[in-house]
């Protein structure tokens, strides 16, 4: 393994290396800007505000719950798109990406129109069960899941299409039902794709702002996630906004780096 990767690096063509490094710099330079602007001297005192931890806790909770929701609904959807002989698959696949294209604020308004107190579905939820999603933590999870689900569906579908269907066929000839085959053969074979999708999904949910603030509103401890806190801090104290952004960045990088290594190495 190590010999192979070394020989690959030795042959790295400049025509790829140069844009690759430029691309990396392009992604990282804004982060450098944040680090340069950070008020390091007052940083500890700013971090000891309960608001920050409330917002961080809520962000992590909601992003994780949204990712779970996306996996429960998104993996079957990806399977449907990749394997089931359904008509109009191309159209459905395009529709799945709608939340990616839609400006998140519009997505939030759309969610209100459907799940809001006066919404198409929401008015019945309210009247029959007394459930009202806007302005609740559950509303945050719904908004984040709406925006983040396409990332999961697209990666999982890609993995499913790349997976060799002969293993599933073999399982079927050995008498396994479709559900058993899916669980024991398909899912393990696409695990890296699922992990990659879940990581993207989680990261997108963690940074979600527009749909969240539109659909779930902003109330500290209930719906104020880190991106919302950052946005509002920017109005009065940009230094605090920088600190909050850094906290969010560091936490997400640490979580993603450690989890991803563990998941992937554990699965292989």
């Amino acid at each position: 393994m190590s010999r192979r990767s070394r020989s690959t690096i030795g042959r790295l063509p400049l025509v790829l290396l140069l844009p690759a490094l430029l691309g990396l710099a392009f992604l990282l330079i804004p982060l450098v800007g944040l680090l340069a602007k950070a008020p390091w001297s007052t940083l500890p005192s700013r971090l000891f505000s309960t608001d920050v931890w409330d917002a961080l806790r809520l962000s992590l909770l909601c992003a994780t719950a949204a990712t779970a929701m996306c996996m429960v609904l998104g993996i079957p959807l990806a399977w449907l798109l990749a394997r089931a002989p359904i008509p109009g698959r191309g159209v459905i696949r395009a529709l799945v990406t709608v939340p990616l294209v839609l400006p998140p604020v519009v997505g939030g308004v759309a969610l209100l129109l459907v799940l809001g107190r006066r919404g198409l579905v929401g008015q019945h939820l309210d009247a029959w069960f007394g459930i009202s999603l806007p302005f609740t933590t559950a509303g945050v999870i719904v908004a984040e899941a709406f925006v983040a689900m396409p990332f999961l569906v697209i990666s999982v579908e890609g993995a499913l299409r790349a997976a060799d269907p002969r293993y599933e066929e073999a399982a079927a000839t050995l008498g396994a039902g479709r559900w058993l085959t899916f669980r024991r053969v398909t899912l393990p074979s696409i695990a890296p794709g699922v992990v990659a999708g879940a990581v993207l999904c989680w990261a997108r949910a963690l940074g979600e702002f527009g749909a969240t603030i539109t659909f779930a509103g902003n109330f500290p401890g209930r719906t104020t996630t880190m991106p919302l806190a950052v946005y509002l801090a920017l109005e009065t104290d940009p230094d605090v906004a920088v600190v909050l952004s850094l906290v969010l960045l560091i936490v997400s990088v640490v979580v993603l780096a450690s989890l991803r290594e563990r998941w992937i190495s554990g699965l292989r």
Partner: peptide, 20 residues
């Protein structure tokens, strides 16, 4: 006793016009 503290006045207005 607000249920939400909106990020700007237009967002607050949208919540009213949608009946939320």
């Amino acid at each position: 006793q607000p249920d939400s503290l909106e990020q700007d006045v237009k967002a607050a207005l949208t919540k009213v016009s949608l009946g939320e």
